[in-house]
Design a protein around this nucleic acid. Structure first.
Lengths: 218, 218, 218, 218
DNA sequence: TATGAATGAGCTTTCATTCAT
DNA sequence: CATGAATGAAAGCTCATTCAT
């Protein structure tokens, strides 16, 4: 019966409740950090009893860990949609930069959560088996792209894919993470569409200007 | 007069106490964030009574602001010792990269405090008049260097000094700020002396490879 | 009929479940007291759903009462196997002492539950009709033994059977109930086989030395 | 000035506050056990802020330990007023029995606290250095009395003072600790003045009947 | 200047209990 | 008969802050 199904799906759906809690917790942690987050507020966000959060996620720290795992799983899934190997090397690099930028821009909570995780010396992450081997595929892909570009004679050699990956991430991350501080100090709103486009262009120039041998190709 | 001397000593003591509190608070905030920092722990660190902290710095938030102001004043003072204009353009850029890297490396608390400030949307910073106009001089200097290099025919034109400054900072910042997370994920200790040297070299390559027209000059 | 058999089986299951719950609850209450006992833990012990406990025993207090009733029924049943009247008076007393000692020793939970019941001023017990008239038979039997011994000229007269019963119980109870505290304070493990034998011997000496007129009989 | 002194003594007297907390906690723990005791209720009893309890006694368990230590110190102090060695052996034993009885009667909380301590396997006590060596003096004194009585030819030999001490305590303890249960089961109020006198008389008869060689002396 | 004592609000967490099936 | 999901109330404990001197 419809009512039964509805009831089953809507009410008392353990998985749905857990997912909803994770989303609410993610937002709360992103907004206030681990120490500033309030379990009460998370419960209010999900409109579920606070006790239920403890029923599923034993403690605040465990909940934060669960949020982190979910966050990493999300970005990894997005990365898997990239199909960088289908593109020519220069395009692949550009695509990776754009993806990184767009993803950080669309997922401000990702940056904040990462900051929080690092404030606590990544101790939560250490406890998680599943997070450990997550980013490696992308690094390997990037290594292949760099090698392909070098073989084609358009990329410089000797570029460590990990360094490059960290650089791409850092260029986007710092700008977005610190935008409030930077905007305040430089007296210039860094989040207008124009400013954002400018930044993306600069990042591409910087990275490609470095890996490409002949700038004329740009 | 004796009373004056005595009074002077007490004043000096007062100042000393304030400075000690600031240092202790800086470490506490850097280690635990704003929400995770404990006034009790700060008092323990300075070995002064908690009440005294409130006597000098009305509240936790005000104390955090004072720490931020002090932190910015410190880095600004360090930047002023750089004398970038005394160097030829390429050397000046390299010097700026090295300085940024070394400073972040030596002042891990700076990175953490910046993260915390941004988590709270830089609202503390907004309240501070003195912080507002702090970084501009360096941006201007960097602009002059870029222009000089372009005039010399060795730098590419059209480089926004602010973008470049943010990029240099971001390359160092992200690596150091997220080193725990990155180390865990990549299963590679990013803080060994070799790894640190590698990173610095990569950063110089990247930035100079971008601004210099002819790579042979490197 | 099949339905009947099935129904019978379910009934037997139901009974088995109730008994299992009682045993688990008894252990939990004995270990942690009423306030420290956890319904969750009891459910875990029985490996049955917590809800089922409420289904059979309306509340924590009611469950505790049920445990108490069961506990009293158990000791009463054991006492009924004593057949003290088959023995000569001195032997009967000795037998009672030994039984009390052995029973308390084998049922540490009995002592703990009694303590808990008394902490709560026996209010649970008051509610129970079935417990009220339980120990009387033994007192009466003891009275008969004492009278028989007096008639035989070997027991002193004027001994209140209730006082004597309470004394026998108290001598065993205090030693076992407080063994942790006593062992700690006296720096002497009171639970070794030797120590236990010593205590039993002392108890017999004490009680029989009191009731017997001529000690030579011991 | 009087006001100053008053203020100093009445308000903000750390020691007085701590003592008051200990008394309130003792009553609460005695009435409800460790698990059933409520920190809120303790605060209400002292009319002091709950936070202050944690300020002085870090946790509920630590507070319980402090209460235990205080309780033991109290009884030990009382025992020291006994001066048993000033009495002839038989009188000394009788005095000890009476003291034990009177003390337990006047300090019902002592019995309850001991029960609670033992429910938790005396784990609190283990942590306390000061409790460890508390009862020994009395045992030694009792040993001397027994020896003196034996030398006088009025006491039997071979009596372990520890066993006797435990027996005296047990005879009083069990009756008083379990009076609710016993009263309910035997349908007889064991706490009337007459009943109490009867019990004390019985205890003296029992113990002295055991240690004295010739009953005529009683 | 400096401090120990004290507090109210609110935190994370726990618990007995009930709902819905 | 049996169960997983859900809850309100309250527990122990924490924290920034203030009082009184």
């Amino acid at each position: 019966m419809i009512k039964d199904q509805f009831s089953k799906l809507r009410v008392r759906d353990a998985d749905r409740s857990q997912q909803a809690i994770l989303v609410a917790a993610r937002d709360e942690f992103a907004q206030h950090g681990l120490g500033g987050a309030r379990m009460d507020r998370i419960a209010q966000r999900v409109k579920l009893n606070k006790r239920l959060i403890y029923y599923y996620f034993a403690s605040k720290d465990d909940l934060f860990l669960a949020v982190l795992e979910r966050t990493y799983a999300d970005i990894r899934e997005a990365e898997e949609q990239l199909h960088l190997t289908d593109l020519v090397p220069a395009q692949a690099i550009r695509r990776l930069i754009e993806f990184t930028w767009d993803y950080y821009l669309a997922h401000a909570e990702f940056i904040s959560l990462l900051n929080t995780a690092n404030l606590h010396q990544a101790e939560h992450l250490m406890k998680s088996d599943c997070i450990r081997d997550m980013n490696s595929p992308l690094i390997q892909t990037l290594g292949e792209i760099l090698e392909r570009g070098r073989a084609d004679g358009i990329f410089r050699g000797g570029v460590d894919p990990l360094q490059l990956y960290v650089s791409i991430a850092g260029l986007a991350y710092f700008y977005l993470s610190n935008n409030h501080t930077l905007s305040a100090i430089f007296g210039r709103n860094l989040m207008t569409p124009e400013a954002l486009n400018e930044r993306l262009a600069h990042m591409c120039d910087l990275i490609l200007g470095y890996v490409l041998i002949d700038r004329g190709d740009l």
